[in-house]
Simulated assay, not measured.
Amino acid sequence: MAHTHNSEQHFEHLLKKHNLKRTEPRLRVLSMLSQKNVATSQPDLESVIGNVDRVTLYRILSAFEEKGIIHKVFDLNGTANYALCSSDCDEHDHRDEHLHFNCTNCNNVYCLDDHDFPQITLPPGFKLESFNFTATGLCPKCS
């Protein structure tokens, strides 16, 4: 039970840090996303989160993405999936630049944070705001 209480305190702190009001639906979304080892779509969240309507869930996800609490990554079908960001992210500096792995069998999207990327050098006049690396193949469960 202590783990749940500590998690809830962590989520409350996260909401406060990003100037978001503490609500039960927001806490449930954070709890569900933290329990997953894959990025999760809005329909999947709807099916497990309980009595939160689609519009409220959309607004929660949008606010969390805008504040740098979660990031969005698309699966092979073009469906948006959401995963928690690292603790360094905020609304002004979103750091979700890591490898995303799409499994071609189960369609799960994994965030693989521990991979180095080559330096990106752009031509003069270009300003990099974000980038996305996606790999496809079979996840350990499917291979």
Rank of each mutant, 00 (worst) to 15 (best):
A2Q: 11
H3E: 13
T4L: 09
H5K: 12
N6D: 04
N6L: 08
E12Q: 14
K16S: 11
K16C: 09
K16A: 14
K16F: 14
L20Q: 13
L20V: 02
L20E: 03
K21H: 04
R22C: 08
R22M: 03
R22E: 12
T23H: 12
R26K: 14
R26M: 06
L27E: 04
S31W: 09
M32P: 00
K36C: 04
V38M: 01
V38N: 08
S41E: 02
P43K: 09
L45V: 05
E46I: 07
E46C: 07
S47E: 15
V48W: 01
I49K: 04
G50I: 02
V52T: 14
D53E: 12
T56Y: 00
T56H: 03
I60N: 02
L61R: 06
A63K: 12
E65D: 10
E65W: 05
E66N: 13
K67R: 15
I70P: 01
H71A: 08
H71C: 06
K72R: 15
V73S: 14
G78A: 07
A80G: 00
N81G: 01
Y82V: 03
Y82Q: 04
Y82N: 03
A83C: 06
L84F: 00
C85K: 05
S87W: 03
S87C: 00
C89A: 05
H92K: 07
H94L: 11
H94M: 08
R95P: 00
H100L: 12
F101S: 00
T104P: 01
N105L: 09
C106M: 10
N107A: 11
L112Y: 10
D113V: 10
H115A: 10
D116T: 10
F117G: 11
Q119T: 15
L122S: 09
G125F: 05
K127A: 10
K127C: 08
L128V: 03
L128N: 04
L128I: 00
E129I: 10
S130P: 02
K141G: 07
